[in-house]
Every structure is written in structure tokens, then in C-alpha cells.
Amino acid sequence: MGLVQKIVTWARIKSPWIIHFNTGACNACDIEIIAALTPRYDVERFGVILKGTPRHADVLVCSGPVTRQIKDRLIRIYEQMPEPKFVVAVGTCACSGGVFNGCYNVEGGIDEVIPVSAYIPGCPASPKAIIDGVVKLLASVDNASKPAKELVVNGT
């Protein structure tokens, strides 16, 4: 690994910018993601900042099962993100479709549509689990500039 690449990887791990996208969630995971950003849990201490546009983000944080309406938009947002990009599925619905599995308007988990790097189960995933997932994802990026392995974080 060249020096420039080392610096880039270091910078990426020290300050991953995330974008949050609700793909059809019930808001429970979404408020837990925001709770993870606010003072009690404060993921900003790991350099995580919530950004408004996918073009600035390294990590796409998805919550909820993928509905038929949102599928194309999710793919479009994923394609707008610069490489290397990581996807975190927050909550049981995002991991597998959860209780909504089998509903006529639901495609299933996030991995039915786009590749996922980390799964955080829980209904909803607690802020503690979300922090654990983010830290494990960063560790796996740190371990190598090789692609992140699939991780499963222990439940809530």
C-alpha cells in the first residue's frame, strides 16, 4: 500500500460520513439511529457525521424492508455514492424483511436489492447495537483496504 493510499484509508476510518435512508421502516429504527447521534450515545466521537446527500457519504445506513416504490430510488442513491461504499442494514426488517416478509408491497431485506456490508438486527436495533455495528464495520475497513467482510452484530 502506497503512502497516499494509507493516508486515504486512515482518513476514511477516522471520519466516515454517513447517509441515512428510510427504505420503508416504521420510524423505530430511524429514531434509534438519530438517538445514536445525540449526546447520550454520540457516535460523532468516532468521526461519524450525518450528511444530506449520497454524493458526500461513505456509508449508506438503511432501515426498513425495501418496498416496491422505494426499490428504484434505493438503487439510484446507492449508485450516486462514491467508491468505496459500504451499506449498513439497521433493524430486523432491513436484514431480512422481518414482520413484513411476505407482504405484497415488500421486496424483502436490503440485500435483495444492493450488497450489504453489515447487518444490525433488533426490533428496533438499539443505539448500543448500532454503535457496535459501526465500530465493527470501521474495524473491518481498517484491517485491510480489501473489501469489508460481511458482519453480523449480536442482537440488542
Binding site: G24, P65, T67, Q69, I70, F100, G102, C103, Y104, V106
Partner: peptide, 14 residues
């Protein structure tokens, strides 16, 4: 509207 439509009412009948 409808991006979040999951079809809960129909699912309830199942």
C-alpha cells in the same frame, strides 16, 4: 405518498 406502503392492512388479514 406511498413510498412507505407495506400493505399492513392486507397482511393483518393473513
Amino acid at each position: 405518498l406511498g413510498y412507505n406502503h407495506r400493505g399492513i392492512e392486507k397482511a393483518c388479514e393473513q
